[in-house]
Nucleic acid binder design. Structure first.
Ligand SMILES: Nc1nc2c(ncn2[C@H]2C[C@H](O)[C@@H](COP(=O)(O)OP(=O)(O)OP(=O)(O)O)O2)c(=O)[nH]1
Ligand SMILES: [Mg+2]
Ligand SMILES: [Mg+2]
Ligand SMILES: [Zn+2]
Length: 523
DNA sequence: GCCGTTTTCGGCCCGACTGTTTTCAGTCG
């Protein structure tokens, strides 16, 4: 403990029970956002608040657990974490607590933080309500609203009181983020509806949906029209709407019956380019773009680009970026991860060069395919037959596919049964290989790396395959060492050619597990 | 509190919508 102050030592002893606990990025993001709220409530310097918000965003986007980065002395590779905040994290990982954060939060009613989940309630309102009415949680807030106590607080009235009650009710049916594949068909329905209006010239899905993030918080749509008010009025009549959150002359937000939020902005075609950029985001990309423009003496907004107070409008995104001296940036890259620097094109000469993104035509095959072949798998039998999959693959212009059904349930089959099933399946696949000569077909199988690190299929059966794909489908929470060991043992098998879903993440359901990736890649 | 290919100091995006506030703060995108 050399070099630690006495209070550090006391704190270390005090929080000893917390030390073994792994503090995840998710928890750190939550902590930073609480500091943001606390600082906002007490009127702290706004740029300091933004710094904490940026730190939270940086951690949210980090591809490694901060704890691991901290172990390796790499915290400074995460954007938004400067000297001060890294110091706080140091304390957090050593002692499980940050004294400065504790002090900041202690000065405020602790009930205020849970109120922030209510739509429309920000830090200022949450603070005021929690303090004036002694609220500890959402239930307290609901009770106070029902008793008509909120309308008497300065700054609130009958409308905001009933809005709070509605918003609390809506918390239940709401999930925080949706899978891209869940949101996509909903967006298509809204788009179809909007395009049905005669004044709608274009309707485009934007935001995280257009950037193709794996999960989206809401559905953002822009419409090009000369008559924004008419479009907004039409939008408000969409039959799937549960409640209109707000609606002005050019913008509206609604809540659908399924709990999803849809945000709409309308703007004439002649200025649609700037709106496309703005509403595609990301927020961080927009801010970076605007700061870059400021340095060039320009001001960017969703209306266009102002030069010396005069607004220049753009029909297309290409022209918008070009005017700023940038190459076109595809939506998938607009995450403020260096794309603006990469797109920068000096007056004469070439840009630094944006990375090329993978397009559909670049995908030559797929080797992770679960068919409906009756192999009696432990889980997730597919829905399409071998032949249906081949047909689809050919439609997609694939050159090859690999059938990788899950292996027969390990606990429900003997070794002999497993071998027989795989032999029978092999014969069927061999037949297909000869039938579809010239099209690559691989006889693969997705096997389980069992809890004890053994494989779910015996060697005699693995021999019959063109290769095995091994994945962890159970005991995801064993810890970094054991997970690493399981993966390394699987890789050791000469029959295992691929490790599937290597982080075990299930979007919106299960966090990734940690493993010693450098060691695994070495193997 | 963070950050840097004109800066290690002095900047930090910009605008819409709402309720209750007589002139705008809070929240959100
Ligand atoms: N300039 C600027 N643009 C913003 C801001 N907030 C949001 N936007 C823009 C960029 C966003 O991608 C777009 C849509 O906002 P959303 O809150 O729906 O974010 P986004 O769709 O990116 O992510 P999401 O999956 O919905 O959480 O609006 C902001 O504070 N400033
Ligand atoms: Mg969105
Ligand atoms: Mg949105
Ligand atoms: Zn799997």
């Amino acid at each position: 403990m050399k070099g630690w102050s006495q209070s550090d030592q006391l704190l270390a002893r005090y929080s000893f029970c917390n030390m073994a606990k792994y503090i995840s990025n998710r928890e750190i993001v939550k902590l930073f956002r609480e500091i943001v709220a606390a600082y906002e409530a007490k009127g702290e310097n706004r740029f300091k608040i933004i710094a904490y918000e940026n730190a939270a965003t940086g951690v949210e986007h980090a591809t490694s657990e901060l704890k691991d980065l901290w172990d390796d002395g790499l915290l400074d590779t995460v954007p938004g974490l400067g000297k001060t905040i890294r110091g706080h994290l140091d304390e957090l990982f050593k002692f499980g607590k940050v004294r400065h954060f504790e002090r900041v939060k202690k000065a405020l009613p602790k009930g205020m933080f849970s109120l922030l989940d209510v739509g429309g309630l920000g830090p200022k309102s949450a603070y005021k309500l929690a303090k004036e009415l002694n609220l500890n949680n959402l239930r307290d807030l609901q009770k106070a609203a029902k008793m008509g106590k909120i309308r008497n607080i300065p700054g609130f009235g009958p409308k905001s009181e009933s809005d709070i009650l509605t918003a609390i009710d809506e918390l239940k049916g709401k999930s925080s983020r949706y899978l891209l594949t869940e949101a996509f068909p909903v967006a298509q329905r809204v788009l179809k509806y909007l395009r049905g209006h005669s004044d709608c010239e274009r309707a485009e899905p934007l935001g995280s949906l257009r950037r193709m993030l794996s999960t989206v918080g809401d559905i953002d749509i822009a419409v090009a029209s000369k008559k924004p008010k008419e479009i907004i009025a039409h939008f408000k009549n969409f039959k799937e709407i549960k409640r209109i959150l707000d609606a002005g002359d050019r913008k509206s937000s609604v809540l659908l019956q399924n709990g999803m939020q849809v945000d709409l902005i309308v703007q004439p075609t002649k200025a649609f380019g700037a709106l496309l950029v703005h509403f595609t985001g990301s927020k961080a990309h927009n801010i970076s773009l605007r700061e870059y423009a400021i340095k060039k003496g320009m001001s960017v907004s969703d209306y266009g680009i102002k030069v010396k107070g005069k607004l220049k409008e753009f029909v297309t995104e290409e022209d918008f970026y070009k005017f700023l001296g940038l190459d076109y940036i595809v939506p998938e890259l607009r995450e403020d991860s260096g794309e603006i620097e990469a797109a920068y094109r000096p007056a004469s000469g070439k840009s630094n060069g944006l990375p090329k993104v993978v397009n559909h035509k670049d995908i030559r095959g797929d080797i992770h395919l679960h068919s409906n072949y009756p192999i009696e798998p432990s889980h997730d039998l597919g829905t399409a037959s071998f032949e249906q999959i081949i047909k689809k693959a050919k439609e997609l212009n694939y050159e090859y596919i690999g059938f990788s059904d899950h292996s027969p349930g390990y606990s429900t089959h003997t070794n002999k049964q497993i071998i027989d099933l795989i032999l029978k399946r092999k014969k069927k696949i061999e037949y297909l290989k000869s039938k579809y000569r010239g099209f690559g077909i691989l006889n693969l199988l997705e096997i389980d790396i069992l809890t004890n690190a053994k494989l779910s299929v015996p060697q005699e059966a693995l021999k019959l395959l063109d290769g095995a794909i091994a994945g962890i489908h159970s005991s995801h929470r064993q810890g970094k060492n054991m997970i690493t060991k399981r993966l390394l043992l699987a890789i050791d098998s000469p029959y295992v050619k691929v490790i599937s879903h290597p982080t075990g993440r299930l979007l919106n359901q299960r966090e990734s597990y940690e493993a010693d990736w450098p060691e695994i890649f070495d193997a």
